[in-house]
Write a protein that binds this DNA or RNA. Structure first.
Lengths: 207, 207
DNA sequence: GGAATTAGATACACGAGTGTAGCTTAGGAT
DNA sequence: ATCCTAAGCTACACTCGTGTATCTAATTCC
């Protein structure tokens, strides 16, 4: 297959395979994943794959398990609105990454859905469970910027839900301005700040 | 294949095939759709399928195109909150139906995504674009129950987005109580009604 | 009742992916 | 320098899906 003088082994090879399966799923979808396709893309022999995994979905799950964890939003400055927007930006960028696509792909596939372990869910998928804006919201709720009772599971989901939906039905990522609108028009009102009837602009009123 | 005295033709046969492909996609996903699988499930010969469609995705798209349109929410009573909940209930039930699954499946599949026509989008997918709560919200906005400027595209999406997200990440449909929470804690606040700090209960304050 | 239509069945050559076996050889360890 | 592990390669038998061709018989139309 490859006559080159270098033959990859161990970590290096596995990393290449992980990258390959994630690219592959982005291109053909989970349902059309094959050992053959993964092998070709990673420039390795099918036998090598079978030595480690039993089928394409196992390869994918393993790849996701070892994927770099998503950067977490750090509520640094005293700027709720800004931090929320930043959190959504992180989420949007992650969803646009190959790993993000792969996760979305797996979650909507009937076959692979049943194979995902508890551990994987915690490690990889939990980010979708609201980690992004939730981290920020909890931080500011604890500091009394808004009543903590308002931070319900539903409210913690609003931002991520809107970003997800936008991606699904328009297939184009929301711009930074779109994210700001989501924060201003949906999240902030839900925690008792707003909405501003006069429209789009909304500097963070904070305390 | 089937020795029975009755041989289906025309409409009847096509309807059976449509039903079959939609069941099939629910079970195996778009990526694993095959003419063979569809044929077997519909108890018809593959030749019959090829006479009409060139590949499995075409069959699926045709099925969706001919699917019964989703029931639209009718904002009848003077009950914004109740109508919103009913709208979300309609949406949830539709998403749980085979057709709903099929649509979700197609929208997240990289291959079929490129084959969907403008027409199909308008006819079938538009419901996800906000038709459910949007219909209700527009109705009450026009009647002055809340300021119309607040009904932005983002706000029109909140309910559907939350329902979608809940389904994707927990894989269990939201209960009626969950839907009520979404309305109370996310939609109503966004249009200037609430949130009620004391918590869950929220009779429609209306005008 | 006869003709036209079209579903059903069967067969076939083909390609793609599978899972395994066996061999060769590069890379790393000692 | 040698040994051992593991990657690369080839081959094979097998299954599944494809697309087409051909024949048959059920249904419908008149």
């Amino acid at each position: 297959m490859n006559n080159s003088r270098t033959r990859r082994r161990g970590e290096e090879l596995i990393a290449a395979i992980h990258a390959a399966v994630i690219e592959e799923v982005m291109e053909v979808g989970v349902g059309r994943l094959t050992m053959d396709g993964i092998g070709k893309r990673a420039a390795t022999a099918r036998t090598t794959l079978y030595r480690r995994w039993s089928d394409p979905i196992e390869v994918l799950l393993d790849a996701l398990y070892h994927a770099h964890p998503v950067e977490e939003p750090s509520p640094g400055a005293d700027d709720l609105r800004g931090d929320l927007i930043r959190a959504l930006r992180l989420m949007r960028d992650w969803m646009l990454s190959p790993a993000g696509h792969a996760v979305a792909s797996i979650l909507t596939d009937p076959v692979s859905a049943s194979k995902i372990s508890e551990e994987l869910v915690d490690r990889v998928f939990a980010v979708r469970g609201g980690t992004f804006t939730n981290t920020v919201l909890r931080h500011y709720a604890e500091r009394g910027h808004f009543p903590a009772e308002l931070l319900t599971p539903v409210v913690a989901d609003i931002g991520e839900a809107l970003v997800t939906k936008r991606l699904i039905d328009t297939r184009t990522p929301p711009s930074d301005a779109d994210l700001a609108d989501m924060v201003d028009q949906a999240i902030l009102p839900a925690i008792g700040l707003g909405p501003d009837v006069r429209g789009r602009r909304r500097p963070d009123p904070e305390a």
